[in-house]
């Protein structure tokens, strides 16, 4: 009985993983395909073939993005600062804490 539960349980989980990726590929893939949108709207949203327009500035541009993009881009801005801080001060921190050489060996 225990073996049966393990077998069935495992296959149910694996079927779930398969279903997850089916949804991801079918739905996620379709998101990246061109969709039917009003042409005027396309031109308004992507003037000059999508190259940024002069004027509004970084913050204004981020504010004007769709919600999903706005959230992701803001997280990435924070990430840039955090990554820069981590990358910039890891070595100075190591040097000031343990000095130059083979530490804690």
């Amino acid at each position: 009985m225990a073996d049966l539960v393990r077998l069935v349980g495992t296959w149910v989980v694996m079927a779930g993983v398969l279903a997850f990726w089916k949804v991801m590929i079918y739905r996620g893939g379709s998101l990246s395909e061109p969709t039917e949108v009003p042409f005027d709207e396309l031109e308004k949203r992507y003037p000059n073939g999508g190259v940024g327009v002069a004027g509004p500035g970084m913050l204004a541009e981020i504010r004007s993005l769709p919600m999903l993009h706005k959230v992701i881009v803001r997280i990435m801005v924070a990430n840039i600062f955090v990554a820069m801080v981590l990358a910039s001060f890891t070595v100075p921190y190591i040097l000031t804490r343990w000095g130059y050489g083979y530490v804690l060996k």
Binding site: V51, G52, A54, P56, M76, N79, I80, A83, M84
Partner: peptide
């Protein structure tokens, strides 16, 4: 941007930059 020149969208710059740094 202040001079009125075309630049790459800031969001593209931000995403490309963090990916490159990482």
């Amino acid at each position: 941007q202040r001079l009125g020149q075309q630049i790459r969208p800031w969001s593209i710059t931000i995403i490309g930059t963090i990916v490159l740094i990482d």
